[in-house]
Design a protein around this nucleic acid. Structure first.
Lengths: 232, 232
DNA sequence: CAGCCGTCAAGAGCAGTGCTCTCGAATCGG
DNA sequence: CCGATTCGAGAGCACTGCTCTTGACGGCTG
């Protein structure tokens, strides 16, 4: 069904690809608030109203950019994970963390679109939740693999999580089967810690405070790896 | 110099107060992108151009809202810290964390303005860095107090931070004097972990995954407190 | 007291935005 | 070949930030 149907449909698909390409470039340079349908249309030599034949609203255009960005960062994490031996859990964790940071530094506006302030009035449609979880699935797999290999022995430090959290832990376990509630909680600490770190660096909270950000990032992610308890 | 000077200056100050008040309300309900000078002017019965007598640009109005928000969250953290005995370091840390979360939940748009995606083209002026560090100073004081009391014994878990980070640690020590490089690094893990957690909850990353957010937050912050090594 | 200068609200206007509607032309399917 | 569908273009609506000019008011000074 990828085969060309009518000529009209082919040019339509081509135009949609061109629009999203230009939009992605505008997003990368000007940020989400500066993404303008009229500007995209202008660059294509179209009149602004013609764009609405292909994207019913600006939010629909934003949605495909969001899906693209989730897929891009998810794929970056997947590829980073695949570069390490499957039983090098600390290495896989670190590689995945670095992939997030490096992708974020290379695509700051896209990162802000995914993990920054939500756009008021924008409701993320269903299409986004699949790609959004690609990265998370990788993290879950690293944890689950380590657990299955018997190489997950978190240091006794955190108190046992309260029983109420068991339901939420059960939901999280769908991406990291077999781990205890305690490990789920630690995984959430590490997960939020990773993105908190990247967001702080990207959103300027480290300005004129932290200079050696790559080194601090590596060290802190290593710290979180120890909290997770990879024995390697 | 707070005394009324000319009548003109008094009404001017009053008008500025009224504008910022209306703007703060608009920000709270519609979010930063929806803050419109024209709407504020309309609500005041002014014509839009008259607003520019008091705020040269929309960014200047945003700046005072940012400063206000930093002061508000900073004061919330300060007051929370003050409710606990000075030597209950874990309690002070937890109270401060909860203050951040509760303020953020009560003022989501303001929080997004401070810790969310930076507005493209907006350059934070010098006036903001003072209020911005109010909360950080409280965290530093908790750490420094614990250190001075000899009640800071972080569990041996993280590797020693690389030497390159010493310079950055020195800068951070201006708000938490006397602590080691290792503690500085752990403090940054905890600091970014706190805001990562709050941002994830507020920006929707926990949607349809985590339900018991207050409990998870408390548990994770307790976990981070153990990482910091308060012996209490 | 008179004059003058600074401050102010108001209006018009510019360039831009998202989005809707209509109209004529091109294209596709039967 | 002809009707139905799709498409690009244009005008238009209601917004936005921001600028410039105009006329009136206020307070300070000669």
């Amino acid at each position: 069904m990828n085969a060309s149907r009518t000529a009209r449909e082919r040019v339509r698909a081509e135009l949609i690809r061109e629009i999203t390409g230009i939009a992605r470039r505008h997003l990368a340079t000007d940020g989400a608030p500066g993404l303008s349908l009229r500007a995209v249309a202008r660059e294509m030599g179209m009149v602004s109203s013609a764009i609405y034949r292909y994207f019913p609203s600006r939010d629909d255009l934003l949605t495909v950019l969001i899906v693209d960005a989730y897929n891009a960062i998810g794929e970056a994490v997947e590829r980073a994970d695949a570069t390490r031996p499957r039983d090098d859990f600390t290495g896989r964790w670190l590689a995945a963390c670095r992939a997030v940071r490096e992708w974020a530094l290379a695509h700051p506006h896209e990162y802000a679109l995914l993990y920054g302030s939500p756009v008021p009035g924008y409701r993320a449609p269903e299409d986004t939740i699949g790609p959004a979880s690609r990265g998370t699935i990788v993290y879950g797999r690293i944890l689950a693999d380590a657990q299955r290999a018997g190489r997950l022995s978190p240091p006794p430090m955190c108190p046992p999580p309260p029983a109420i959290l068991s339901q939420d832990a059960e939901a999280v376990r769908s991406v990291m089967p077999g781990v205890s509630d305690d490990v789920v909680a630690r995984a959430l600490v590490a997960w939020t810690g990773l993105f908190g770190m990247v967001s702080f660096e990207l959103f300027g909270q480290f300005n004129s405070v932290i200079e050696h950000r790559a080194e601090l990032f590596d060290h802190n992610m290593t710290c979180l790896a120890h909290l997770l308890g990879f024995s390697s």
